[in-house]
Amino acid sequence: MALADRYDHQPGVHCGAAALRNVTAHYGLTYSEAACFGIGGGPAFVLYEDPDEPWVRVRTSPTWLERAFFERTGIPHLFREGDDFETAWDNATARVDDGDPVILFLDPAPLDYVPDDPSHVPPHTAVMIGYDDERVHLSDGAAESTVEISRETLAAAWSDDRYLPLRNEYLVVTRGRATADDTDAAAAGLRQAATYMLDPLQVKRDARGPGEEGVPALQSFADYLGAWPDLPEPARPVSAARRSIDEHGEGAAFRSLYADALAELGRSTGLGQALADRMERVADEWRTVAGLLDEILAAEDPGPSRFEEAGSLVGDIADREEAVFETLADELGEVRTD
């Protein structure tokens, strides 16, 4: 099997941020997972309409995080999508032959090593580090060690039309050096997160879905939760929402990871520790919501009041997140749409 030499797999909290940390480390660059998440513009909140279900799905991190990270750090890279499988395969494997790990954007549903995650809204990020005629060797932050999948599984995961289109997308570093100032990159990522959560239409990036985004989506999600008892199978959307909040085991809609990003990147951008502490308290509230959803799932008949309680908690979170991001925007000055 051809392998990208000296690649060091490390698991992480967020599949994309972990991939960024691991890939940049391969080129001798030092970014923590939290810094990658913050520079990339995390976190997010997006509602997706699923044509096969009478309820919305939730994503709590940006679909553009990896591309935005490379753009802001100025690390030369190539992003490509839309090729047929054979062309994308030939291009990606040629880069592995040259020793370059290749970031892939996948539908997680066909990936049987991703545990119990059918509700994970694509794309899921993994890194191709090796291959042969029949198998692909992946570094995935959601897994403790590297994994192998068949070429057929890759083909099924790499292109999909479920409710969020994927077209054999990949990203590869073309020169392993940062050309932008790290402080500028950090400030740009933090600014975009504030802009996106407060006024998502001002951010010229595609969340790949027609649903609501940012704090307005959080407020709508609170209303959805309160109405779910009227659905024929309310446990299904509750279970999906629970897994979205706890995606890859973080347990707090990636708000704890973002608190770490605010603490680390804040030291170079003039932010105080208080803002990171406030976000960590928001993460604790997300954990409370996750626990309440667990109780609803375990109850034989939870009753509408438990759903209303969960919706009220999410509404409170929306208010708290709005206040945090307003403070972030104020402290960083002019809000940009990059």
Rank of each mutant, 00 (worst) to 15 (best):
L3H: 12
Q10K: 14
G12P: 00
H14C: 03
R21S: 08
T24A: 08
S32T: 15
A35K: 12
C36Y: 08
F37M: 08
I39M: 07
G40M: 08
G40P: 05
L47R: 14
E49W: 13
D50P: 08
P51T: 12
W55N: 11
W55D: 13
W55V: 14
V56N: 15
V56M: 10
V56K: 14
V58Y: 05
R59C: 06
P62S: 12
W64T: 13
W64I: 11
F70M: 14
T73A: 07
I75D: 10
E81F: 11
D83F: 03
W89C: 10
V96Q: 00
V102I: 12
I103P: 03
L106W: 01
D107R: 04
P108C: 08
P110A: 01
D112G: 06
G130Y: 10
S139W: 09
D140Y: 11
V147F: 04
E148W: 15
T153F: 10
A155L: 04
L166K: 13
N168Y: 09
Y170K: 13
L171I: 12
L171F: 06
G176W: 04
A178G: 07
M197R: 08
V203H: 00
V203I: 14
D206K: 06
D206M: 02
G209S: 15
G214K: 01
V215E: 01
V215N: 06
P216L: 08
P216D: 07
P237Y: 01
V238C: 09
A240V: 00
R242A: 15
G249A: 09
G251I: 01
A253P: 08
L257Q: 13
L257G: 15
A259Y: 03
A259R: 12
D260R: 14
R267G: 07
G270V: 10
V282Q: 06
A283M: 09
R287S: 09
D294S: 15
D294Y: 00
G303R: 10
S305F: 14
F307D: 02
E309A: 13
G311E: 00
S312N: 11
S312E: 14
R320L: 06
F325Y: 15
A329Y: 02
E334H: 10
